[in-house]
Design a protein around this nucleic acid. Structure first.
Lengths: 330, 330
DNA sequence: ATTCCCTTGGTAATCGATGTCACAAACTGA
DNA sequence: TCAGTTTGTGACATCGATTACCAAGGGAAT
């Protein structure tokens, strides 16, 4: 392990040049079979493995996939990453992750850093609003969860608007008219699209939209308690809550349970562990992070292999999982 | 972004040699102040940033921390990684993660791969039983969650035995005598130590240990239902369950709720989202993954900075969080 | 004034693998 | 037999930053 075996060592043992040894290792055809065997034997004997750094430097590209997400510990992204990593490892590629903490500046820094490292491909859940600078990226890029702006690129998305509609329509069909929307702060497209879906559902049902029912919470806020309490203490409190993402659901549900307000109908955009063990079990609009990860990685790997297909925006399927909380009457 | 600026470009613009430019960039002192300024100006004007690959190749070490865990999507590890990454990014270091899927062979492969990449440090949650081969590792190594075997190394651990004792004693003090132990398969030290704690608690309370109350489940098993059902269907079913880790708790609780058996007392080793929103809320023995991540990263960074302190095994604090499920009477 | 030291900067080697190009040998076809 | 091709091989340059080594110039000390 410690002693580094170089290509030249292999070449010396095989009594040939480094170039030819390199040819054998990289599977070039034009090598005499006896020479090839000598080199292969030397490789085995010395336990030689090419230095990935030197190779990358020379080749100009690293066998590495860069993944940029909000935060690794977000369960959604953790699953996405897990799946990407699994696919990468099958191909002996490395995964470098970098999180943005939802900061646009930080996103630029980490993407730049990854490109500096000559990653062979990028998978990005972006929080910025302009990706024109990636037009010249020296590697394929696949966006996940959030669209690319000013850039023609592959993307694997969730149909945010449709998902929100699915959830809100469900609540409406169970007789709710006073439905609150709780989500992260609304600076992100994903959040805006979900809000659009919510708005659309209400509109189609002829329910007037009320601003005081729409709450965007700072995701770094530890305790959503006061906000939820205030919402429920209004003269006309909502009878149902649509939560626009998992992280938000976890926090709001904690509060609702603490307050003993499990009579409020609830639908979560995004499933989570224990959702079906709560009382009542939580109705969710489900999308599979693993599936998104797999699709994104697949797309990226194909591009990295040179596939010149037209860019595509893939929308992953969504479905409502009724479990109880979304079927409560007002 | 695409145009690569080299050190020689900087040197040319600053009208000096690459050597001197390099000195300025790496903060050497022996450079004339006017020269230094010219170089700095050139760096700014060209937007130069050293190529990390070339630098690593030359230096023999990469500004990268390698993290090896069972699986990224495991909430415990996701949090640990998140914290490590945060600390690394503050120091402009990169994090490469690799997961073992709990396979010893795979662990060897990924660790080897990381060392090949000349990572500056390693943080490992190991599943293997011998780490002698890391004695010669060219970089500092910190173990997390699981001890190093045959290797004197830093480690940041949870006191598994004490944690299990805490949980099981708690159940015993609430009158339980028939306490089941559910955990992952027992091939891992962590799991064994927890089982030891369980055994010890029973012993001290004069409760005979029953093999049919100890169940090690394959973590890849999707549905723990049949196992739990069988356990509860025995002639003398347990009145309490101690679950040895979070992943296990999530699965078992799902089953218990489905069966409507929330009368069974339950203590989980490891907290999780929604634990306090379940009915009854789940009593847990809590340990902070973030804390573990921070301690491990801190330790590693100090070693990387050349600190030659003696190796240390740090045990993170544990505490019982009584919430209801652990206080149920038999 | 001369020697010595110290600062400063240049040249070239190095890290390890690979692309370019040239060249020899072997082989083809006429 | 000879031009022309194919095949196999190696010397050398290259990727970009760092560094060992050397040299020159300025200032201080004798």
């Amino acid at each position: 392990m410690i002693r580094r075996v170089r290509l030249s060592d292999v070449a010396a043992l095989a009594e040939t040049s480094t170039k030819t040894a390199s040819r054998v290792i990289n599977g070039h055809t034009k090598v005499g079979s006896d020479t090839r065997e000598r080199v292969e034997k030397a490789v085995r004997e010395l336990g030689y493995r090419p230095d990935p750094l030197a190779r990358s430097l020379r080749r100009g590209t690293d066998d590495t996939i860069g993944v940029v997400v909000d935060e690794v510990s977000d369960p959604f992204f953790a699953s996405v990453i897990g799946e990407i990593e699994r696919m990468a490892l099958d191909r002996a590629m490395t995964v470098i992750i970098a999180s943005t903490q939802r900061l646009v500046d930080r996103e630029h820094i980490v993407i730049d850093g990854l490109l500096q490292r000559r990653v062979a491909g990028l998978i990005i859940a972006s929080v910025s609003h302009d990706h024109a600078h990636l037009k010249t990226a020296p590697c394929p890029v696949v966006f996940i969860d959030r669209v690319a702006v000013n850039l023609d690129s592959d993307a694997v998305l969730v149909d945010d608007r449709a998902g929100a509609r699915l959830g809100v329509d469900h609540l409406i069909s169970h007789g709710h008219k006073r439905i609150a929307y709780l989500g992260d702060y609304l600076g992100i497209d994903t959040a805006r699209s979900r809000l659009d879906g919510y708005r659309e559902s209400l509109e189609l049902a002829g329910i007037p939209m009320r601003d005081d029912y729409v709450i965007g919470m700072d995701p770094s806020l530890a305790d959503s308690g006061p906000i939820v309490e205030a919402l429920l203490a209004t003269p006309e409190p909502p009878t149902a809550i649509f939560s626009a993402n998992t992280r938000c659901s976890l926090r709001v549900l904690t509060t609702l349970h603490r307050l003993g307000r499990t009579d409020i109908a609830f639908v979560s955009f995004g499933d989570f562990a224990m959702a079906d063990a709560l009382t009542p079990p939580i109705t969710v609009v489900d999308h599979s992070p693993e599936f998104i990860g797999r699709l994104a990685a697949d797309r990226l790997l194909r591009r990295m292999a040179g596939d010149e297909m037209p860019t595509q925006t893939i929308t992953t399927p969504l479905h409502l999982v009724p479990r109880g909380s979304g079927e409560l009457a007002p």
